[in-house]
């Protein structure tokens, strides 16, 4: 806890930088974001959206789920880079000492004297799909698997019966082997578009003796999360590409790096159900910004994606605020 307090105590306001990411991502294939299980139906999470003419339900990529993936992706990367501190850190037992806890927050409840909490400085938001489409329902089969002496038997019931009877299992028990069980599973339809927003408050932009700098951590976890999002298989989304800046197809992505919020935030109203209108709204707001005294930088489209890639790999970027 002492470390943490010193860490926040530094709190050099001159170095405080905000980093916001606004993107529209596309489900490149079906996705599953689990909700409460009904009997033999795996439901996905839907969000209720109020509208003037009543409520509608939309597909939902919950920011809380994006957050979990982001945190794990970063944890693995730091582990891979040889960070010793993160080895003893994870949900639910966050350590409160590693770089990850300092950025994503931590809750320490069972460490005796050092009990406490760190507030997160990265917030995931958005996630309400644009299109108003219903989930797709697919039939799936859950097959019982038996492993006997290292041999795996699945459908071949007679073989399993034989193996079991060789081991002295007799009578009615052999007829009680499980049958394959059909069930239904709901999916987010492919090509569903989700606006997602990340808001980060960075306190230390330099790498110093850490494995990753804070902007690098945010950029890396954002890019890494995209391919890992979704429960089970298949997984992954991709930033939607569209001719929204007038220079051909480009990722629908905006990165803000700023000390003062001098740009309009490209937030799409969750009530919008028309993709074209939504992107027009996004583009219109994205172009409304000004940079007074180098307090605000906005990157759009391909240049934003390049900035993210450069940041994620720890390269020097063209951003003046991050290099100051």
């Amino acid at each position: 806890m002492q470390d943490v307090q010193n860490y926040w105590g530094v709190n050099d306001v001159g170095k405080r930088i905000n980093m916001d990411i606004y993107a529209i991502v596309e489900a490149t294939q079906e996705l599953h974001f689990g909700n409460v299980k009904d009997l033999n139906v795996n439901r996905i999470e839907l969000v209720t959206v109020p509208r003037i003419d009543g409520e509608i339900e939309k597909l939902y990529m919950s920011p809380t789920k994006v957050r979990g993936v982001a945190r794990r992706a970063l944890l693995w990367k730091l582990y891979e880079l040889g960070d010793e501190n993160v080895k003893s850190c994870g949900i639910p037992a966050t350590c409160g000492k590693c770089d990850l806890c300092k950025l994503f927050g931590g809750l320490m409840t069972t460490v005796g004297e050092e009990e406490g909490s760190i507030a997160s400085r990265v917030f995931q938001a958005g996630g309400v799909a644009i299109q108003e489409v219903s989930p797709e329902i697919k039939q799936r089969l859950s097959s019982p698997t038996y492993i006997i002496d290292g041999q795996i038997g699945q459908y071949d019931k007679n073989k399993i019966k034989q193996l079991l009877s060789e081991r002295g299992v007799k009578g009615d028990v052999l007829n009680r082997l499980s049958q394959p069980m059909p069930y239904e599973k709901e999916y987010v339809v492919a090509s569903a578009l989700f606006p997602i927003y990340w808001h980060a408050l960075l306190l230390e932009i330099e790498k110093e003796n850490r494995k990753m700098s804070e902007p690098q951590m945010v950029a890396y976890s954002f890019l890494e999360t995209l391919k890992r999002i979704g429960a089970g298989h298949p997984k992954g989304v991709e930033i939607f590409h569209y001719n929204w800046l007038g220079n051909g197809e480009e990722p629908v992505l905006v990165i803000d790096i700023y000390k003062e919020p001098l740009g309009k935030r490209p937030i799409i109203s969750p009530m919008e159900t028309d993709v074209k209108k939504a992107i027009v709204e996004f583009a219109k707001k994205a172009k409304m910004y000004n940079n007074v005294d180098n307090k605000f930088e906005r990157y759009m489209g391909e240049s934003a994606h390049e900035l993210l890639r450069m940041l994620a790999s720890g390269e020097k970027t063209e951003s003046k605020l991050l290099n100051s």
């Binding site: 926040w8 709190n11 306001v13 001159g14 009990e115 406490g116 909490s117 000390k259």
Partner: peptide
């Protein structure tokens, strides 16, 4: 640009 609170035990 003022300081934010430090975490509390």
């Amino acid at each position: 640009g003022e300081e934010l609170p430090t975490p509390k035990k």
